[in-house]
Design a protein around this nucleic acid. Structure first.
Lengths: 151, 151
DNA sequence: CTGACTGCAAAATCTTTGCAAAGAC
DNA sequence: GTCTTTGCAAAGATTTTGCAGTCAG
């Protein structure tokens, strides 16, 4: 479903990108990327902040840096975000194009899926409206299997 | 594509619903429903607030009432909302189930579409994951036809 | 060195809440 | 009259920004 890229490659790519844009490679930026890459999952900026505080108590970091870095990483198509209305966004490693989400209303868990039919159909729709598609989001909300069983 | 319901029917339905839930029919609630129904389109709470201020200068209303009423109307499945990350939500008349959206990044305009293939595929996916779907959102972002022409 | 980056705290957004006064029934 | 609703302003929650000090290259 998706090609696995080693962290080393990801990091090299990130460094190259920073250099190309006259940006600097810093411990904070690396750490944020590292956390998103290694903890496969979906994180709010606060999640990432807390994870860094817990696991790297020596590193000084502010929440603003998390936001700034996530914006940077998203612009660079290294991470992507999924929005939760008023309750903010969650970020994950990789490009949004590659999959969509099933979001559980009960536990907040997220499952991912990729569906060729939906991908293709989106392109057909965009074409029909002469719409130049740059992105798309598909989110199915409901109750996940394990939360259904709990009851 | 959708059945047209007269405003009178909508209003009667709303009144009945209020009564059933021991809620009161007020000028503010009616006005908010009215605006969403008559101005076919997508509105932020602030849009609605401004429209009321402009068109009904005699009515006193606070932004909190708009939020409270929109929540009420959404719970009652009379209006639905579409989320824009940090930048809040837009509300429109009618149920979300009936269509999805094409959102222009340039002008912020929204076009609606309904696609049978996508609707069905969503159900297939939910079933595959044993996921009890209660709702879904599909949003295609990009540049709309008229904004492409402007350049 | 120089300009980019950072943390901090303050500001900006958007939304919700507490409360006394007003209004629906 | 009773109980809900309202407007207001204050509080929350999340995100962004200004700035002086720090750090990468």
């Amino acid at each position: 479903m998706s090609i696995t890229i080693s962290y080393n490659d990801v990091l090299q790519n990130f460094k190259k990108l920073l250099k190309q844009n006259n940006l600097k490679y810093t411990a904070q930026r690396e750490l944020i990327l590292n956390i998103i890459y290694k903890n496969h999952g979906h994180f709010t900026p606060e999640d990432i902040y807390n994870l860094i505080k817990e696991n790297y108590p020596d590193i000084k970091i502010g929440i603003a840096t998390i936001y700034r870095t996530l914006t940077l990483l998203e612009d660079a198509n290294i991470v992507s975000s999924i929005s939760f209305g008023t309750q903010g966004k969650k970020y994950e490693f990789g490009l949004k194009e590659h999959h969509d989400h099933l979001v559980c209303l009960e536990c907040g868990g997220i499952e991912e899926f990729f569906d060729e039919t939906i991908e293709k159909q989106q392109e057909i729709i965009a074409k029909k409206f002469n719409f130049k598609m740059t992105n798309h989001v598909m989110k199915i909300t409901g109750i996940c299997e394990s939360c259904q069983k709990k009851k």
